[in-house]
Amino acid sequence: SELMNSSKLIRMLEEDGWRLVRVTGSAHHFKHPKKPGLVTVPHPKKDLPIGTVKSIQKSAGL
């Protein structure tokens, strides 16, 4: 199965306009000026399962 580095996923979010608002432990929480909701990324993780990545991307509207 495909894995993604959390840094790469965070870069994709930031390029889309998401900004880090809070860190709780290894959970990084992002908000967007125009899009609704809060997106949480486990970080640092070298090997996020593709299912997790897809669900984060979906929440972020990517």
Rank of each mutant, 00 (worst) to 15 (best):
S59D: 14
V23F: 06
R11F: 08
T40F: 07
K34C: 10
M4T: 15
M4Q: 13
P33G: 08
G25L: 11
S26E: 12
T52W: 07
V53E: 02
S6D: 01
P49M: 05
K58Q: 15
G51V: 10
E2C: 10
L3R: 13
S26T: 12
M12Q: 10
K34N: 12
L9Y: 02
H28G: 04
P44K: 04
E15Y: 08
K35T: 04
E14K: 13
L48Y: 02
K34A: 10
M12C: 06
H28I: 05
G17N: 05
V21M: 07
S7E: 13
L48D: 01
G37S: 05
M4A: 09
D47L: 12
K35M: 03
L13G: 00
A60N: 01
K35I: 03
G37T: 05
R19Y: 15
G37R: 06
P44N: 04
V21R: 05
L38G: 06
M12S: 07
G17K: 03
S7T: 14
L38S: 07
G61T: 03
L3A: 14
L48F: 05
S1V: 12
A27E: 13
E14T: 09
A60C: 02
L3H: 12
V39S: 02
G51K: 14
K58Y: 08
E15R: 09
T24W: 11
K34T: 14
T52G: 02
K34P: 00
T24Y: 11
Q57G: 04
E14D: 06
K8M: 15
D47Y: 15
K58S: 11
V39H: 01
T52Y: 08
S6G: 04
K54C: 10
T52L: 15
H43A: 03
L62W: 05
W18V: 00
P49T: 08
L48C: 02
K45W: 06
A27S: 14
H32F: 01
P44C: 04
S7L: 11
E14L: 07
K45A: 07
L38P: 04
K45R: 15
P36A: 10
P44M: 03
P49H: 06
V21G: 04
K58F: 08
G17Q: 04
T40G: 06
T24H: 11
V53L: 06
E14I: 11
H28N: 08
T52P: 02
W18Y: 03
V23N: 06
G25H: 15
K46A: 14
L13D: 00
I50Y: 09
V23E: 09
H43G: 04
N5V: 10
I50P: 13
Q57E: 08
H32G: 00
R11D: 13
A60E: 02
P49G: 09
G17W: 02
R22I: 11
A27K: 09
E2H: 11
H43K: 02
R22G: 11
E15D: 13
K45V: 15
D47R: 11
H29S: 13
I10A: 02
K45F: 10
L20V: 12
V23A: 14
L48I: 10
M12A: 08
H29I: 14
K8F: 15
L62E: 02
V21A: 10
E2Q: 11
E15M: 10
P42V: 04
P49Y: 05
K35A: 03
G17F: 03
E2D: 14
S26K: 12
G61E: 05
K54T: 09
S55L: 11
G17A: 03
L20S: 05
V23W: 09
L48M: 07
S6Q: 02
P49C: 06
L3N: 12
N5W: 06
A60F: 02
V53Y: 04
V53T: 05
L20K: 06
S55Y: 11
K58L: 13
P36F: 08
S7K: 12
R22W: 15
G25Q: 13
G51M: 09
D16C: 04
A27L: 14
R19M: 13
R22C: 10
I56V: 06
V41A: 02
I56F: 01
L48W: 02
F30R: 00
N5A: 11
K31A: 11
K58E: 15
K54F: 05
K54N: 10
L62T: 04
Q57K: 12
G37W: 04
G51C: 09
S59L: 15
H43I: 02
F30N: 00
G37M: 05
S55W: 09
Q57V: 15
P42S: 05
V23G: 06
K45T: 07
R11A: 15
S6A: 05
K46Q: 14
A60K: 01
K8S: 13
G61K: 06
V39N: 01
V23M: 08
I50L: 10
E15G: 08
E15H: 09
R22D: 10
L20H: 04
K46L: 10
A60H: 02
L48S: 01
R11L: 10
L20T: 07
D47T: 11
N5P: 14
I56G: 01
F30P: 00
E14C: 07
N5L: 09
K34F: 14
H32M: 01
D16I: 06
K54A: 12
P36Q: 09
L20M: 09
R19C: 09
H29V: 12
V39L: 06
P42F: 04
V23L: 06
G17H: 04
E15L: 11
P44G: 05
V41P: 00
G61M: 06
P44T: 04
L48P: 01
T40C: 09
K54D: 10
V41F: 04
M12N: 05
K54M: 07
E14R: 13
E14Y: 12
R22V: 07
V39I: 12
M4C: 09
A27G: 06
E14H: 09
H32T: 00
R22F: 13
G61F: 05
L38I: 14
L9E: 01
R19E: 10
P44F: 04
K31P: 00
D47C: 12
I56C: 02
L20D: 02
S6L: 03
K35P: 00
P33I: 07
K8V: 15
S6P: 03
I56R: 01
P49D: 15
P44V: 04
P33V: 07
D16E: 05
T24F: 08
A60Q: 02
K31G: 08
P36H: 10
S55Q: 14
L3I: 12
T40H: 10
W18Q: 00
G25V: 14
P33M: 09
V23K: 14
K8Y: 12
T24D: 11
T24G: 12
I56P: 02
M12Y: 07
R11V: 10
Q57H: 07
V39G: 00
G37F: 04
T40D: 05
L9R: 01
P44I: 04
